[in-house]
Design a protein around this nucleic acid. Sequence first.
DNA 1: ATTATAGTTGAATATATCTTCACTTGTCAA
DNA 2: TTGACAAGTGAAGATATATTCAACTATAAT
Lengths: 120, 120
Amino acid sequence: MSRNEFFCDCNVIHQEAVLEVLQKMPDENTFNRLADLFKLIGDTTRCRILFALDQREMCVCDLANVLNMTKSSISHQLAVLRRSGVVKCRKSGKEVYYELDDDHIVKLFEVGLEHINHKG
Amino acid sequence: MSRNEFFCDCNVIHQEAVLEVLQKMPDENTFNRLADLFKLIGDTTRCRILFALDQREMCVCDLANVLNMTKSSISHQLAVLRRSGVVKCRKSGKEVYYELDDDHIVKLFEVGLEHINHKG
DNA sequence: ATTATAGTTGAATATATCTTCACTTGTCAA
DNA sequence: TTGACAAGTGAAGATATATTCAACTATAAT
């Protein structure tokens, strides 16, 4: 096989391996959404927000105190989480209360914690 | 309660909620490691590499062809994955074969895929 | 030995993203 | 109606990170 049949800057070592795996690979969109999901929880601040909201519903000010960060910073991150559909909110007077809106997030945390407790 | 007992730029709305959640929160190190884990798989390229390696062991050149990217780019990302202990490699002649070295990664993928299939 | 190739690596550029700051909005209380 | 405060937001600055490019190493084949 010549290198030009594939799109990399090298020769193909194992053609059948490449083709076999290519067939099994999900499409680009799936990977983008998967990576976006993990990127979403791949930030210390958002991790802590989600963990806190898994304990109980909280308003922005409470979260700011729990995380020891400014309301503005928390609010920006909550907007990200809201847009991604992993948290939802309800307004009550001047306050806005947030809670988790996704069971999978908790599962991901559990598996993630297993991982880091298992490793050094 | 005065605002100065807490560290945020606002008053505390629900003191007991804050204290209760604070008690349940893991320490900083745990969140850093958790976020780092998710950040690790929160990248399209690394997602695809890990997915491919979950199908079978592959060398760098094969991976480059599967992902349609340069060897250099793949190699950089493999170094990241190696340092984090989620892949391991063995050398054979001129080639270096990589494989998954972490069961949790596959579990995380499964839960992640459930999530994105469940949502729109 | 020389050449070709698989793989790694450092530096640089480009891009994404997190926090801060200043301002705005909406709601409650006086 | 005015003041206070919770929350949201756009812009800016700072930081992190992904890919490219150009060496460089190591191995195999001639």
